[in-house]
Computed example of a mutant assay.
Amino acid sequence: MQSLLQTCPARLGLLGNPSDGYEGQVLACTFTDFQAEVCAQPAEQWSLQAGRPEAWKGDLRALWRALEGGQLREGAALLAAALRVLKPLVEQQAASLALSLQSSIPRQVGLSGSSAILIATLDLLNRNWRLEIEPLDVAALAWRAETEVLGIAAGPQDRVIQALGGLLRMDFSRPWPPRVERLDPFQLPALFLAWDPNPGQSSGVVHDRIRQRWQQGEPKVRAVMASLAELAPAGVDCLRQGDDAAFRRLVDRNFDLRASIWTISDRDRSMVELGRNHGAAVKFAGSGGAVVVFPQREDDLPRLMDHYRQAGFGCLRPRLEIPKGKEVES
């Protein structure tokens, strides 16, 4: 075996999130400016290296113990969790691997950095061992790795959009697999991404409290999630009709619904209000820490991006991914 390299891009939540974790629908896309990169090389024993000079090394039994005992941190834990959901297949392999990870995705700003690592790792193992696992099954494995192995509260959309790529409407109102519709990213209105360079808190922490209220059947939380879910199909209609103004109204509605049940930090709210004060529609790209901004006119992009930079935020116009060879049924 030669060295193998696999990447997975970051994700933008456009409409409906976070209703995906609550039997809802979402519209999201992947973009290639930020990505996770996992490399595999043949080795005498298993090793995991994630951004630090030293790597974890040992046999598989030691790896499972380290994972279950909480001895692995951050990227190494994600690499190990991807292996753990494939445990029977991993243990059948005669050769050990040295897995290494690099990621340019800003941490804890809601751009799906953790799931990108899981998808990249699972895709790499899928290629290396010729497992022929379908993309939606890769997404399900990544979701299990995050929720069951690592105990992180997470909705399914990140794994699905990153396994398939592009611009997708995803409907999670029925049991797995979700209904997925591929759309043309060139139909989206002009947009850009802004993020806080100072990391926030894990998306799992953000979701824990609301999930408990949802499970208890709290009427307000249930009603907000139902309203959020309606935004995704409405947004698809706007794209097909070329109604950018209506799409932007849905974007603002998304944030307002979210803010009605979630506590929004002052820093996150300032990112939203900065764009709104200049006539743009703004919502979180994920669970907070980054926003996707839709100005009224494409000509407004440079000026508005400058305002965000002057306020100390990172800023870019994302290169939306156009995937190949990952078809889904409409």
Rank of each mutant, 00 (worst) to 15 (best):
residue 308 Y to P: 13
residue 131 L to K: 12
residue 157 Q to R: 07
residue 7 T to W: 02
residue 124 L to I: 07
residue 191 L to G: 06
residue 321 E to G: 05
residue 9 P to R: 13
residue 154 A to I: 05
residue 310 Q to W: 15
residue 196 D to R: 05
residue 290 A to C: 06
residue 159 R to D: 05
residue 196 D to H: 02
residue 235 G to S: 04
residue 129 W to M: 05
residue 100 S to G: 04
residue 270 S to L: 11
residue 104 S to T: 13
residue 117 I to V: 09
residue 139 A to Q: 03
residue 276 R to F: 05
residue 284 F to P: 00
residue 167 L to K: 00
residue 36 A to G: 09
residue 178 P to I: 03
residue 273 E to N: 06
residue 179 R to N: 00
residue 120 A to M: 06
residue 51 G to R: 13
residue 282 V to H: 07
residue 166 G to L: 11
residue 65 R to C: 14
residue 36 A to Q: 05
residue 206 V to N: 07
residue 292 V to W: 02
residue 125 L to M: 13
residue 310 Q to S: 02
residue 8 C to F: 06
residue 221 V to H: 08
residue 224 V to R: 00
residue 90 V to I: 09
residue 149 V to F: 09
residue 66 A to M: 08
residue 233 P to A: 07
residue 202 S to C: 11
residue 304 L to T: 15
residue 231 L to A: 02
residue 102 Q to T: 14
residue 202 S to M: 12
residue 110 G to D: 11
residue 45 Q to W: 12
residue 17 N to V: 00
residue 248 R to H: 08
residue 78 L to M: 03
residue 176 W to P: 14
residue 315 C to W: 01
residue 322 I to V: 14
residue 22 Y to Q: 01
residue 124 L to K: 14
residue 285 A to S: 13
residue 165 G to S: 11
residue 36 A to R: 13
residue 234 A to N: 13
residue 74 E to K: 04
residue 246 A to E: 10
residue 71 Q to P: 01
residue 32 T to V: 10
residue 304 L to E: 05
residue 22 Y to D: 04
residue 238 C to V: 14
residue 113 G to C: 01
residue 256 D to I: 00
residue 267 R to T: 14
residue 325 G to V: 03
residue 33 D to K: 11
residue 286 G to R: 07
residue 50 A to N: 11
residue 199 P to S: 05
residue 266 D to E: 04
residue 176 W to T: 14
residue 215 Q to D: 01
residue 88 P to D: 06
residue 142 A to C: 08
residue 297 R to Q: 03
residue 325 G to R: 11
residue 199 P to V: 03
residue 64 W to E: 12
residue 88 P to L: 03
residue 76 A to L: 13
residue 286 G to F: 02
residue 202 S to D: 08
residue 279 G to M: 15
residue 309 R to D: 11
residue 250 L to E: 02
residue 84 R to E: 15
residue 118 L to W: 01
residue 56 W to T: 11
residue 231 L to P: 00
residue 113 G to R: 03
residue 292 V to H: 09
residue 223 A to E: 00
residue 329 E to H: 12
residue 192 F to S: 10
residue 223 A to P: 10
residue 215 Q to A: 09
residue 16 G to E: 02
residue 139 A to D: 00
residue 180 V to A: 08
residue 206 V to C: 10
residue 318 P to T: 06
residue 287 S to T: 13
residue 256 D to H: 12
residue 204 G to H: 06
residue 43 A to E: 04
residue 187 Q to E: 02
residue 271 M to V: 00
residue 119 I to H: 04
residue 208 D to K: 11
residue 163 A to Q: 04
residue 115 S to P: 09
residue 172 F to G: 03
residue 66 A to E: 09
residue 2 Q to H: 07
residue 105 I to N: 06
residue 102 Q to V: 12
residue 268 D to R: 15
residue 169 R to Y: 06
residue 33 D to Y: 02
residue 103 S to N: 08
residue 197 P to V: 12
residue 216 Q to M: 09
residue 138 V to R: 11
residue 167 L to S: 10
residue 169 R to N: 06
